[in-house]
Design a protein around this nucleic acid. Structure first.
Lengths: 196, 196
DNA sequence: TCGCCCATGTAATAAGTTACATGATTCG
DNA sequence: CGAATCATGTAACTTATTACATGGGCGA
């Protein structure tokens, strides 16, 4: 239940409403965790019921009421305990690679077009992250630990997008320059079955 | 339902049993899709019921019987149709980055130890993928399209692991060399609230 | 006035995880 | 003799997605 922990780590920073959390997941922490508002409200209700959070209703003029959530001592200790136990890297799932895997079933331009579309998406995300980097983290070595940690998560996002961009270029280039038919025979049998 | 499509693309290559599929997801295609055997058997039953697959029971001596699955024309056309529609990049989720985000709540060595553990995991995966690369793909430009596509998925895996390794090094280095307290004041207020 | 922002939820379905369950063969 | 491989599944539970639902304020 790592969504719970992602929520806790945002709420420990500052009390927020479900709506605030939603925007965070959709924005600045979106490169390492995502959640829809439905998930968030359900999880908040659960965490409150378990006593990991407390809620306070705030009346607002010219805006709907909102519920501000705070992490309790119990919630905090659960988060810290989780942080001290090892966890495994995520099992990744990527539609685009599934499509490529069976890529010979469609026309090559279809693949290239989709690769280019993804390239643009990654480019936009990268630009967003780099804006944050230059705005808030000019001298990351001189920041206190708390912000160095934040910076490192941002760095992960930046690297991730850069890496996708490079790979998209590599793929578009390879598919755009059809194979010469020189050496197709010998290798065909060696890769005839899938490698293990 | 992209698990269905991942299964279809493996079965189009060659008829396989649920057990075969399980090994593939656990091995060579594991860097872009994963599934447990329970998921696979359930999905196979569903796809068979929908007429996207046909099953043939194979009796074996000194081994349990197995069911070989083949993709039907209907299944193939569904896969191709899916491949021609755009899909979005995965919404990533990473425990390690959640831990880092709230990293100031635990002792720095706890973070470094976990980073080093992940570093080793990524290093092993990278080694596996690179073995495949040198064994099967010495001259990828000269392969027919089908194997170029496979190669590109492998390249994605290699890049991904390399990128993680580099980032782990960056993070371990930063956390291992505590901040000098020179410029902590001014920046603290600018990053006081989370960036958007 | 049309659509977006704020703000919260329920309900149904799909997908993924964990636990339980069996049983022969083969290799060290 | 014990562990791993081959081979298949069911059941219960947790997570995630999609659709449905409401309603005022505010700016173009």
């Amino acid at each position: 239940m790592a969504l719970a922990h992602a929520i806790l780590s945002l709420l420990i920073e500052r009390p927020r409403s479900g709506y605030d959390l939603m925007k965070q997941f959709d924005g600045s922490v979106g490169f390492f965790w995502r959640a829809t508002h439905q998930q968030i409200y359900r999880e908040l209700a659960r965490l409150e019921a378990e006593g990991w959070l407390t809620a306070e209703t705030i009346s607002q003029t010219s805006k709907p009421d909102k519920k501000l959530f705070r992490v309790t001592e119990l919630g905090r200790s659960h988060l810290v305990a989780w942080m001290q136990t090892p966890t495994e890297p995520l099992t990744m799932k990527d539609d685009l690679l599934v499509k490529l895997f069976a890529g010979h079933l469609v026309e090559t331009p279809v693949l290239i077009k989709e690769l280019e579309r993804h390239r643009v998406l990654h480019q936009h995300r990268l630009a967003d992250y780099q804006t944050i980097e230059t705005q808030f983290f000019q001298q990351p070595e001189h920041l206190p630990l708390e912000y160095q940690c934040r910076y490192l998560t941002l760095r992960r996002g930046i690297r991730y997008e850069l890496d996708w961009l490079d790979w998209c270029d590599e793929a578009i280039h390879m598919l755009g320059h059809p194979a010469s038919t020189l050496h197709t025979s010998g290798l065909q049998t060696t890769t005839d079955r899938i490698y293990r």
